[in-house]
Simulated scan of single mutants.
Amino acid sequence: MKILITGGTSATALKLLKAFTGHQVVLADYGEVPAFSSAAYRMISLGAKNEDTLAHTLLNYCLDENVEAILPLHHFELVPVAKSAVLFKEFDIEVLLPNHAALAQYSNLGKTENWAVFNQGETIFMTQPNEMLVHKAQTNQLSGAYYFDATDQEPNLSLITI
């Protein structure tokens, strides 16, 4: 799978690379980005940030780069991309976010050491095994990158953003 991760110049984006070993990763960010490529990823610039056309800009870059999934990390991208998920899907691009109506429920936990990445309920990566979280992800068909608490109770989730 080829995936585009926004916020590509952040430490958070680099941390998430662990979840996508064996996949092609394009790290993208607004403004100037280092002209750097490695075996694990390639970096590109998304140009100047324009919040009025975010989803359209991201879709164009996804199409130009032939990506199959997008993981937006900037907090200002979440709503526009979630609202446009159907459009991305029409071009066979998975949006790794919960649906727009569910976004608010995944913004309350904050950072923890534990995190996981899901695509339509399938666990792509998890820092610490948690069967209750796997079940919750499958039941809710979750997509996205989340911090989670490691309690024995119902796991709380928070979208990873920068």
Rank of each mutant, 00 (worst) to 15 (best):
L71V: 08
Y147R: 14
A104C: 02
L59Y: 01
C62H: 10
N99K: 11
K49A: 14
R42E: 15
Q105P: 03
S84L: 04
Y106S: 09
H75K: 15
S107A: 10
L59M: 10
V95K: 03
E94Y: 05
E122Q: 15
I70T: 08
F76R: 05
K83N: 06
T127I: 11
T53E: 04
D149P: 03
N108R: 15
A137L: 00
V67K: 09
L109E: 01
N60P: 00
T57H: 06
A137C: 00
L59Q: 00
E51L: 14
N108Q: 14
N99P: 04
K49M: 13
N50F: 02
K136G: 01
L46W: 13
F118R: 04
E94T: 06
N130M: 01
D92H: 03
F118N: 02
Q128W: 09
G110F: 08
Y41T: 00
T112S: 13
L87S: 08
S38M: 07
W115S: 03
H100L: 12
N60M: 08
T57R: 15
F148C: 06
E113I: 10
K136I: 05
L59G: 06
E68C: 02
N60V: 05
N50I: 03
F91W: 11
Q138K: 15
G110K: 05
T57I: 12
H100E: 13
W115L: 02
A102Y: 00
E122M: 08
F88K: 00
N130P: 01
Q141P: 01
L58I: 09
H135V: 14
I124N: 00
L103Q: 02
R42G: 10
Q120F: 01
H56Q: 15
K111N: 07
V79N: 10
E90Y: 02
K111Q: 11
L63Y: 06
K89D: 14
T112K: 12
A150P: 06
F125M: 05
K111A: 12
L54Y: 05
Y146H: 05
L71D: 00
G144V: 06
T57S: 14
T123Q: 13
A35L: 14
G110C: 11
A150I: 09
I44C: 02
N140A: 11
A85P: 11
E65I: 07
E90W: 02
M43Y: 02
F88T: 01
F148S: 05
T151P: 03
L63M: 13
N108P: 00
S143E: 10
V117E: 04
H135I: 15
S37K: 14
I70S: 04
D52R: 15
E51M: 09
L71T: 01
S107N: 12
N60H: 13
I93A: 00
A35K: 15
V79D: 12
H135S: 11
G121S: 08
L133M: 09
V79I: 13
S37M: 09
N130K: 00
A48W: 04
F91L: 05
S84R: 08
F76W: 12
N60Q: 15
A82D: 04
E65R: 14
I70M: 06
G144W: 03
A116R: 03
G121M: 09
A40Y: 12
K83G: 01
L58R: 03
E90D: 10
